[in-house]
Design a protein around this nucleic acid. Structure first.
Lengths: 165, 165
DNA sequence: CATTCCCGTAACTACGATGGTTACGATTCG
DNA sequence: CGAATCGTAACCATCGTAGTTACGGGAATG
């Protein structure tokens, strides 16, 4: 299952929002996959793969070349956690093995059919919980928890290796 | 993630309930792991492993030796799908990677903290959906879908090799 | 135009979870 | 005792995910 992808995706969207729409309007605000990877603690390729899923979902855009990077497409109020969850999660939360339905035993088919409705409702309940929270809510929590974050997106790694002092 | 285990566990509990508490009171009603495996379409060892988890949760009991097998411990009204889900599922539905919290970036910590509450609530909503359905409800659906199932638990394999006619 | 930066993606490895299979000891009934 | 059945260890195959390296292509800038 998509284990850590969900949390990392929220992290990346938070970084893109804080740096890209920070109110200063400077063009260098779009963070690169390398910076994001350093912040998250993983590889730039992993970040690009994950952001690629978010781009397919229409949540971010990318631009190549110097000064390029990743930006969110809309205001953080417009994207819910369910949008992010669906973008980065491939399979269902409670995947019912289709192999069970193919068994010769009629009980298997009936159990599968009865379970389908229950699981669908349980999953819908979970998705309603995710849909009730937007990226803006998460951002508000982050800003409340570390007020200095919006100034320097990655406080502990503001000075990167290749940057001139 | 525990993919097909949940559906298979419900299937096994259905078999044990139909055969063990069929109202006839005959002692030979407890199905063996071999019979269940044939019905589910898998290996007896896999069935025993899964039933072992259900036994740890107190949902079934086992007895060795000839005439042994598996029985449910209580009436099907007493066990909910959430009980089964928790018995066979090891990890959380939306596991938040702890590695994300260990990152140096303060945003990661705050994102993780903010997400914790949301995910807990979403998962609780899903679990309420599972807790609302009992094994008896599933049994009712199965009985409605295949009325002959309760007479012979495994209709297509009622006559096994070792059984006297 | 050349350089430099950055995205996009393929290919490979590593690792853990899961399921399937075999095997063997322990237990229970006749 | 012998047969049936559980309990469990051991091993292998498969799959999803993460990490890593590598390379091609587009974009800004001198």
């Amino acid at each position: 299952m998509a284990c850590s992808r969900f949390a990392v995706a929220i992290h990346l969207l938070t970084l893109a929002t804080l740096a890209g729409a920070d109110g200063t309007g400077r063009s260098g605000g779009a963070p690169t996959s390398a910076r994001m990877a350093e912040s998250v603690g993983t590889n730039p390729v992993v970040v690009r793969r994950l952001l690629g899923l978010l781009r397919e979902a229409g949540l971010v855009t990318s631009r190549a070349g110097p000064g390029g990077g990743w930006r969110t497409t809309g205001p953080p109020e417009g994207t819910t956690l369910l949008d992010v969850y669906r973008a980065v999660t491939c399979d269902s939360v409670l995947p019912l093995a289709d192999a069970d339905a193919a068994g010769a035993c009629p009980i298997g088919r009936e159990v599968h059919r009865a379970l389908d409705a229950v699981v669908a409702e349980a999953q819908a309940a979970m998705e309603r919980g995710l849909a009730a929270v937007s990226l803006a809510d998460i951002l508000a929590d982050v800003r409340a928890g570390c007020p200095g974050c919006e100034v320097g997106p990655v406080a502990s790694t503001t000075r990167l290796a290749g940057e001139a002092p």
